[in-house]
Write a protein that binds this DNA or RNA. Sequence first.
DNA 1: TGCAACCTACCTATCGTTAGGTAGTTGAAT
DNA 2: ATTCAACTACCTAACGATAGGTAGGTTGCA
Lengths: 191, 191
Amino acid sequence: MPKRAQKHDSTKHAILDVAERMAREGGYHDVSFRRIADDVGIKSASVFHHFANKEQLGAAMARRYSDRFMETIGDPRDPGTTGEEKLARYIKAFSHALKVDRQMCLCGMLGAEIDSLPKDVANEARRFFNLNIDWLETALTRTGGKTGKKTDIHGKALLVMSALDGALIISRATGDTSHFDQVAEQVSRLV
Amino acid sequence: MPKRAQKHDSTKHAILDVAERMAREGGYHDVSFRRIADDVGIKSASVFHHFANKEQLGAAMARRYSDRFMETIGDPRDPGTTGEEKLARYIKAFSHALKVDRQMCLCGMLGAEIDSLPKDVANEARRFFNLNIDWLETALTRTGGKTGKKTDIHGKALLVMSALDGALIISRATGDTSHFDQVAEQVSRLV
DNA sequence: TGCAACCTACCTATCGTTAGGTAGTTGAAT
DNA sequence: ATTCAACTACCTAACGATAGGTAGGTTGCA
């Protein structure tokens, strides 16, 4: 099988890192090849060696973010953890964005911009939300005694995700991280 | 008293209308003087006759949006309506953005971009969120029998706003307005 | 006459993108 | 072991388009 060039991959990752940071701060439209190149330490034309165009770069960036996010929150069917623990882990992922990364959730940002995104980027953003809804529905379904109706579970999944994504925006806008904590506390009691 | 020039005001309003639409679709960075001018039917240089620069235009746009939003949701102290009715009216304002305007909440968008906004624009976005939190706290406090602790009210206000702002993003991203409705239904039961 | 509300014409900076080139590496044939 | 073609990972230089912004002129109304 192909022995991948190491240099290629490390530069590619560096490009995605910088692009993601830019998109999580200022949105897709604020991502620029020249500023990416400056940060990585190459020329802007060289970015095209790794990504065909901005749309493909954006799509790869969103896909990588989704994959990483799903890996962070783990298996929603894991019998070793309770529904409460799974939800706590989900909340922690958003909390990490706010308090460690000090940035928006990438796909929250892309979701807000959805109407103005190139097709492939928009599709990746949509995929993120659908994956999250599925994950939450699965995690919230097998919660000990409380099983609840299917529609209830679906609604709760939507509420959890909405509240956390919104709380991220509000906390960052007001500059008060305790706003997120107060929302998270109420969300965690929904199980 | 100053007899305002009508032409000035109508053009100014037209500029703000177009700028707001652009910002609610693609964010602040996607707002452009040339595209505004094209839509309004003037030249881009003429926009500077009405607004000193992009930052001032952005700030005016956000301020106008906030003022209009606060007027829409009405007086949170109005003794003629119940807490439930006030909350329903608040939810309706977000629902209107989703289903009639088919756009993001302007300040939700600006909130997501907060780190990359010019100072004056960021301040207007912050102001919107603080006004909203205050409004919700007031509206939720005087709700018939249930008064609740002050910290509970504050937390509920944050949850309502977070959930609705997040639901707006998720509904638009997934293209399913029923997602918003399901969140709204749960939020309305928080009173 | 004076000012508001535009205009033309232009500036510099940056955008995504392309063409074409170069240094270094690799793998296979000579 | 040497040569050579192919390939990777970059580069320089530039394209046309667009960005925010400015100087100074024109027009029409009070």
